[in-house]
Design a protein around this nucleic acid. Structure first.
Lengths: 191, 191
DNA sequence: GTCTATAAAGTGATAGAC
DNA sequence: GTCTATCACTTTATAGAC
């Protein structure tokens, strides 16, 4: 049972980080959610920042597995990106990393910010690879810059979360994704 | 001089809201930045929320004027949207409204959330109008859904801010914008 | 109209009992 | 390894002097 409190702390932190971000998440709220005392947290972790780091590392592991599952599957580049963008998401809750990227206290913490930064640069690299392969295969126009299209896709996803949250309606997210895919198909050669 | 303290409070709040969001901005920080005492704030406003509302209303006025200036100018639909997307921005500071859309305390306040929500629905409406006019003029393909392309453009902008902030580098923002414009031009008929 | 003093509650962290 | 008690500090807000 030695690892049970630790795990519960990390899982509670992951949920609270997702809903309220880092700055607005108090150790007290984490302890209440995990159902453990304060001493337990300071035994397993150095403090709030250290606990958040552990939670974000778990998020990164899961995210990489999910993205790889979407992008490494069979089909064309458009199929892969469509699969990635259409994956079921908790849209109104937002992106676990996107929310933290905007958090001033995360930005002020090198340890925390690095995790966010690396996640997004890895994602854009993976998307770029898929688009470049599509160009090599003659599926996508070689005229476009693969890096910028990859950035546009990652941005549409992140911005879709923002628009949906502003409208309190997932429709805005779905529309943005649809728009990106419509335009992506416009640079695909009919086969 | 009766309005001087009030104005200074609103302006300081606008800056702090932009940098730290709503939850993380304390009345104390606002007072320090404005250089006025606490009684002054509670004389002019009911409290933190009321002051934030006044600051966000000012932001909304400015935003509408700027967007109208970009989109109501001369040129084609692609020209207008290119002008809007290429407007000089303080990218690493992010979007005044996008940041607040993600703030849990803003979402919990009907008065504050409404301002964010109305801003984004108005923006998407204006972008949709421009794209629809481009389709009527035969400049843009009638095949695409104007509403979804408008959502994609708004999302690319918001997401571009997120990516740039994550990378601490405006290049990610510029790439995303470039990608969106490349694809937009792909549905424009050469003239 | 603006100030300072103060309050009650919450913050992140430490101490020490068990 | 986990608990509760406590700390110094900050939060949003009110009271009352000037």
């Amino acid at each position: 049972m030695t690892e049970n409190s630790r795990t519960r702390l990390v899982e509670s932190t992951r949920e609270l980080l997702w809903d309220r971000g880092y700055s607005a998440t108090s150790p007290r709220a984490i302890l209440d959610a995990a159902g453990v005392g304060q001493g337990s947290m300071y035994h397993h972790f150095h403090g709030k920042e250290d606990l958040a780091r552990a939670a974000m590392q778990r998020n990164a592991e899961e995210m990489r597995i999910q993205v790889d599952a979407d992008l490494a599957g069979p089909g064309t580049a458009v199929d892969k990106i469509t699969g990635y963008l259409h994956r079921e998401r908790d849209v109104l809750r937002g992106c676990r990393f996107g929310k933290l990227a905007q958090d001033a206290e995360v930005e002020a913490s090198a340890a925390l910010h690095t995790l966010v930064s690396e996640m997004f640069s890895w994602l854009q690299m993976r998307l770029t690879e898929v688009i470049e392969q599509g160009q090599i295969d003659g599926e996508l126009s070689a005229e476009v810059n693969a890096t910028s299209v990859a950035a546009m896709i990652a941005a549409t996803l992140q911005g879709g979360y923002v628009l949906a949250r502003a409208a309190q309606d997932t429709a805005a997210f779905d529309l943005a994704i649809e728009g990106a895919l419509e335009l992506l198909r416009a640079i695909a050669t009919p086969r």
